[in-house]
Write a protein that binds this DNA or RNA. Structure first.
Length: 462
RNA sequence: GCGGUCUUAGCUCAGUUGGUUAGAGCACCAGAUUGUGGUUCUGGGGGUCGCCGGUUCGAGUCCGGUAUUCCGCCCCA
């Protein structure tokens, strides 16, 4: 058969993994530097855990897992009915699919917090690096399996958590050498907006439409708002928001004029001002209040974040996040506010590839430090013994696995794998216990006994 | 889920209005070179032209379906 993998999924070769791990290690190091602790959760969740958290569109992007051994079920009539209903409209039937692949890491985290609340010391900082799955149509930078790297603080209302996350974002992208623009907004602003224009029920439609401003323009947004049944009067009231361009402080003034008399609006503006005024390192990061930033996920209630690359032509969203005041409530633990962010390393990878900002040494990384070459079974066996000695000294090495008189072929192998040192062992070497070490880059050779070889390699490999 | 697009050797791609045995570069293998790689030269292997069906005397080329890639919509890391 012809081998293939599902669309939207990918294999990662050793050179891919070197680059992916470079990104991952940077982010993981910073997570730990900020005191986050790692957890993992299962790839699959009960489907009821996931549904209803991501909006209607999100629910349809959940990968469902068909129940096993349905042919042995005793409830086939019920299943047939459920299947018929599933053909009619989007729904979840636990008779057919009781499990699903996780869609993000935040909802499983909320579930974890509720289940383990007695063992957790709050406020809890956790990080989680695992793949998620979305039944989306693949495109460039849009995969059906991809990794999220989440850092969340839960059990604290303090806005200093938001400041810490901004600091973490700033530090991570500057270390990765990716120029970014960090946008933020507050869901309370959007809620207040819907209230002020008397379209409270349409908040989702309003936020989704406004979020598209930079993509479809003001006319596009207005058209979509009207199509969704928002009144012309309400749309008119929104115009100052859509028109406005200016500094963060000027935007706050616009918000005050528009929403200053609304309680929720006041609170949102306060939170925004706190972040902007925080006497922090924020001035050096590219922090922008974007009053049209909405984000689709339903569970956000306060601050929302989004990061985009600020260079090159491929500038997808590479980080998202925000504050959720009551995600755990649905699982039975109310009043547990959390805030978190999620790095999308697959897209960060694509952006870094385009910008060509991976350090050069990553692509040159060798699989090991030394290759032993040989001529026959006897010399190969001697090499295996030498390899044990080197590895005991923490020097990585490999013995060419096949026996061949063609030493050139063995050298070519070292050359292709960027292995920096080659040691050839034959009967002369075994007899004298002196080995010729060749440094591939220069071609220089050194004749050394085992102890000198170890010392030499340790010095050279530093 | 809807619309468009791509697919020819391991990789990147040519392939004329449908017409002999489908090509190139790189990679691979062998030799020049029997204890030392990168350069060079010579030779060689490798294709159900994504898959299924149709039109035709004849299909890589035209038509239908399907899968995949990428793009737009929707949504999002």
């Amino acid at each position: 058969m012809k081998p293939s993998i599902p669309r939207g999924t990918r294999d990662f070769s050793p050179s891919d993994m070197q680059k992916r791990n470079y990104i991952l290690n940077c982010i993981r190091k910073n997570f730990e530097l900020f005191g986050f602790q790692q957890i993992e959760t299962p790839a699959m969740e009960n489907i009821s855990t996931l549904t209803g958290k991501y909006g209607d569109e999100g629910d349809q992007l959940i990968f469902k897992i068909l129940n096993s051994r349905i042919h042995e079920s005793k409830n086939k009539e019920v299943m047939r009915k459920e299947f018929e209903l599933s053909l009619q409209s989007s729904r979840n039937s636990e008779e057919l699919t009781e499990k699903a692949l996780r869609y993000d890491l935040t909802v499983p985290f909320a579930r974890y917090v509720v289940m383990n609340q007695n063992d957790i010391t709050f406020p809890f900082r956790r990080y989680q690096i695992q793949p998620v799955w979305r039944a989306d149509r693949p495109q460039k930078g849009r995969y059906r399996e991809f990794y999220q790297c989440d850092a969340d603080m839960i059990g604290s209302n303090s806005l200093t958590n938001e400041l810490e996350l901004i600091s973490l974002i700033d530090k991570s992208f500057s270390e990765l050498n990716v120029p970014v623009i960090l946008k933020f907004n507050n869901r309370k602003i959007l809620t207040a907006l819907a209230e002020v224009i008397n379209e409270r029920d349409k908040i989702i439609d309003i936020t989704v439409a406004i979020d598209k401003l930079d993509k479809i323009g003001k006319e596009g947004v207005n058209k979509e708002l009207l199509e969704k049944g928002i009144s012309q009067e309400a749309v008119n009231k929104l115009q100052p928001l859509l028109d406005f361009k200016g500094t963060n402080e000027e935007k706050v003034e616009v918000l005050k004029n528009l929403l200053g008399n609304n309680e929720t609006g006041k609170k949102g503006i306060e939170e925004i001002e706190f972040i902007l005024n925080a006497n922090f390192k924020l001035q050096t990061s590219n922090l922008e209040l974007d009053i049209t930033l909405a984000r689709g996920l339903n569970y956000y209630t306060g601050t929302i974040f989004e990061v985009k690359a600020n260079a090159g032509t491929f500038t997808p969203s590479i980080l998202g996040g925000g504050r959720y005041d009551d995600l755990t409530g649905i699982f039975g633990l109310p009043n547990m506010s959390g805030v978190g962010i999620s790095f999308g390393i697959d897209r960060i990878y694509d952006v870094m590839e385009e910008l060509n900002v991976f350090p050069e040494q990553i692509s040159k990384a060798a699989s090991c430090s030394m290759l032993f070459t040989h001529f026959d079974e006897v010399s190969q066996a001697h090499c295996l013994q030498l390899a044990v000695e080197l590895r005991n000294q923490n020097i990585s090495c490999e013995v060419y696995p096949d026996v061949s008189k063609k030493i050139g072929k063995q050298f070519d192998y070292a050359n292709k794998k960027n292995i920096p040192f080659v040691c050839t062992v034959g009967s002369n070497e075994i007899e004298k216990q002196i080995y010729a070490i060749k440094y591939m880059e220069s071609g220089n050779k050194q004749e050394l006994n085992l102890q000198d070889m170890i010392d030499y390699l340790k010095t050279e490999l530093k």
